[in-house]
């Protein structure tokens, strides 16, 4: 065992990379849930985003177009879920599961000709001046654009939810759709927009895995990241900055166990690879123990079906 081979600075930098996909997906899902819709299809939207992004980036040679395509792919898939739950009033749990199963099949089909190809490289963006700070500079300020984008997006979502009228309406719809409807807000349309936003971010998160983190396409490569994102939303009590914290914590656990594996620590690999999932369960237990749904901060109308003339 040689723990000294783990460089804590490199570790921190790789945590930022490992956390970005879950951060994007969890942030999107949080907005969807804030509008009162529980979309369990995050895994399906992520994997679809991963394959859309990869295929488009390989065909065009542009990772940026890949990310745009991934966001579109995720959003289109999420609108299928929206159609089912908002217009055809299906059960949200069942529809979300259907979305995941459908997305896994769809991505396997789309990606079968792209296995074993390498993604076009993305260039890192050095933040001017800041990147030259000794020690901290290379860790925090020499990443690809998506890392900064995801953090900026957390701030944006926080500000919109907290300070703008649009954010207030979104929250109102999520807390009490009947009251929001009575006030004249278009509940279904607002929710469709929130669902599409969640889908687009999940798609971006998936594409980050296939284009930057791995960067290759393999079937089922998201490996539960979408489900972990759902757990992070609960962990974060539906608050944007805590989503960031949660995602980085889980990214940290993932990177740490990979590093421990590489360093040949005297713990069997099987336990290390279980670690992120076990930590997720543990965190869920701690968060849900002794506290009700309301105290957790869950939107009151989460998962309820809205039917105007019902």
């Amino acid at each position: 065992m040689d723990l000294s081979s783990i460089n804590p600075l490199v570790l921190l930098a790789s945590i930022m990379v490992a956390s970005t996909p879950i951060l994007l997906a969890a942030l999107g899902e949080m907005v969807t849930e804030k509008s009162g819709v529980l979309n369990l299809g995050v895994e399906g939207m992520m994997i679809t985003g991963a394959v859309c992004g990869f295929v488009i980036a390989v065909e065009t040679g542009s990772p940026l177009l890949g990310f745009v395509g991934a966001a579109l792919g995720g959003a289109v898939l999420s609108l299928l879920f929206g159609l089912l739950t908002q217009y055809l009033l299906s059960n949200q749990v069942a529809s979300g599961l259907a979305l995941t199963l459908f997305g896994l099949g769809l991505s396997a089909l789309l990606g079968q000709k792209y296995i074993g190809i390498k993604a076009p490289p993305t260039t890192d963006f050095d933040v001017p001046l800041l990147a030259d700070i000794p020690v901290l500079g290379p860790i925090l300020f020499r990443h690809d654009m998506m890392v900064y984008f995801s953090i900026a997006l957390v701030a944006l979502v926080w500000a919109v939810l907290k300070f703008t009228r649009a954010g207030l309406i979104l929250r109102a719809v999520g807390e009490n759709h009947d009251a929001a409807h009575a006030l004249g807000y278009k509940v279904v349309r607002i929710r469709m927009a929130a669902i599409a936003f969640g889908g687009a971010l999940a798609g971006l998160g998936g594409a980050y895995i296939s284009l930057i983190r791995v960067p290759q396409w393999t079937e089922g490569m998201t490996a539960g990241a979408g489900w972990i994102a759902l757990a992070i939303v609960v962990f974060a009590s539906w608050r944007p900055w805590r989503v960031l914290l949660g995602a980085y914590l889980f990214g940290g656990v993932t990177v740490l166990q990979l590093n421990l594996q590489a360093a040949g620590v005297n713990i069997p690999v099987v336990y290390l690879s279980m670690l992120p999932y076990l930590v997720t369960i543990l965190v869920l237990v701690i968060m849900s123990a002794k506290r009700g749904r309301a105290a957790l901060g869950a939107p009151a109308a989460l998962g309820r079906i809205f039917h105007a003339s019902g």
Partner: peptide, 26 residues
Amino acid sequence: LPGAAIQLLQGMLLFFLLAVDVLANF
């Protein structure tokens, strides 16, 4: 026919099922 196509077919089945369910309840 690729195996993934069958997986997609099964996913579609669940989608359509949930979609037409609206006829039973409404």
